Computed example of a mutant assay.
Amino acid sequence: MTKVTLNIPDNELGFFMKLIEKFNYETVENEFLISDEMKSILDERRVSSKKEDFVSWEEAKKKIRLKS
């Protein structure tokens, strides 16, 4: 069996779903668990964050260095 992963823009999802209704497909959702401690940390960060400290995703990607 071959599996294909597609990234579909939200505004095109309805069209795509109608297109593939005739095919046998399986919807897969990424599922992950997060502890109450992690939720608390994220909530605290949301409350204490400042808009001027944010960087765009494009800028952040440039700063990421992968370790080999």
Rank of each mutant, 00 (worst) to 15 (best):
M1Q: 14
T2F: 12
K3E: 08
K3Y: 07
V4H: 13
T5P: 02
T5W: 10
L6Q: 09
L6C: 12
L6H: 07
L6D: 02
L6K: 11
L6N: 12
N7D: 13
N7I: 13
I8P: 03
I8K: 11
P9T: 05
P9E: 14
P9S: 03
P9N: 08
N11P: 00
E12A: 07
E12N: 11
L13C: 04
G14C: 05
G14I: 02
F15N: 07
F16S: 10
F16Y: 07
M17F: 06
M17Y: 04
M17I: 09
K18I: 04
K18Q: 14
L19G: 15
L19N: 11
I20W: 02
I20A: 12
I20N: 08
E21G: 10
K22N: 11
F23C: 07
F23I: 10
N24K: 15
N24E: 13
N24G: 07
Y25M: 04
Y25W: 15
Y25G: 01
E26G: 03
E26H: 11
T27Q: 12
T27N: 07
V28I: 14
V28T: 10
E29W: 01
N30R: 05
N30F: 06
E31K: 08
E31P: 00
F32D: 10
L33Y: 11
L33C: 02
L33I: 08
L33A: 09
I34W: 07
I34K: 14
S35Y: 00
S35K: 02
S35R: 00
D36C: 03
D36H: 04
M38F: 08
M38P: 02
M38E: 15
K39L: 14
K39I: 07
S40R: 02
I41P: 01
L42V: 13
L42P: 04
D43M: 08
E44M: 04
E44S: 13
R45V: 02
R45C: 00
R46S: 02
R46L: 07
V47I: 14
V47L: 13
V47F: 11
V47T: 06
V47G: 00
S48E: 13
S49K: 13
S49I: 12
K50D: 11
K50Y: 04
K50Q: 11
K50C: 04
K51S: 14
K51V: 09
K51W: 00
K51I: 06
E52I: 01
D53H: 02
D53V: 00
F54A: 15
V55F: 04
V55Y: 01
V55D: 05
S56Q: 02
S56R: 03
S56V: 01
S56F: 01
W57D: 10
W57Y: 08
W57A: 12
W57E: 12
W57G: 06
E58P: 03
E58G: 03
E58S: 05
E58L: 05
E59R: 01
E59C: 00
K61C: 09
K61G: 00
K61F: 11
K62T: 09
K63F: 00
I64M: 14
I64F: 13
I64K: 06
R65S: 06
K67N: 09
S68A: 10
S68W: 00
